[in-house]
């Protein structure tokens, strides 16, 4: 009996239309990339550096991240400063070689290097893929919740 009713009045079609109608008033799940940023969680993107209370990078230049990096894309130079302190002269990551494995983050004993969720690495020249300490300290500001 019920079947005949359904068949005659196409109730299932209306049910379907109802679902469609419901979704028309919901928030869209797609993102209009690249006009909009896509929200991404649990993603390993461009690195950033944590800073201490003075706003200086926490990195001490221990070379552990350089050593652990399987893509060999981290390049560090250190030296002794004027008062005999450990000084990071140069800290560069070649993003065009980085495989975003996150090993550097894992190895860092100073909680300095981390990976942000920024993935917009595209650039027009190779040189621009090389990021330095200042870039990474700045990049910290792009991290959610900071």
């Amino acid at each position: 009996m019920k079947n005949i009713f359904d068949t005659i009045f196409f109730t299932e079609i209306f049910q379907g239309l109802g679902v469609t109608l419901k979704h028309m008033f919901k928030k869209p799940v797609t993102v209009r990339y690249p006009y909009e940023e896509s929200p991404i969680y649990k993603f390993r993107g461009i690195h950033y550096m944590n800073v201490d209370e003075r706003g200086v990078s926490k990195c001490v230049g221990c070379y552990l991240c350089e050593k652990v990096c399987p893509a060999e894309c981290i390049h560090i130079e250190t030296d002794a400063g004027p008062n005999g302190e450990r000084l990071v002269r140069k800290f560069e990551i070649d993003l065009s070689r980085c495989i975003y494995c996150g090993f550097c983050e894992e190895a860092c004993p100073k909680d300095a290097i981390h990976m942000s969720d920024r993935y917009d690495t595209v650039d027009s020249t190779r040189d621009n893929y090389i990021i330095n300490m200042r870039y990474m300290v700045e990049n910290r500001k792009n991290v959610k919740g900071e």
Binding site: G61, C62, Y63, K67, T78, D79, A80, G84, R86, L87
Partner: peptide, 9 residues
């Protein structure tokens, strides 16, 4: 040599 490099390099 202070702080110039690491032994594994």
């Amino acid at each position: 040599y202070l702080f110039k490099n690491r032994p594994w390099n």
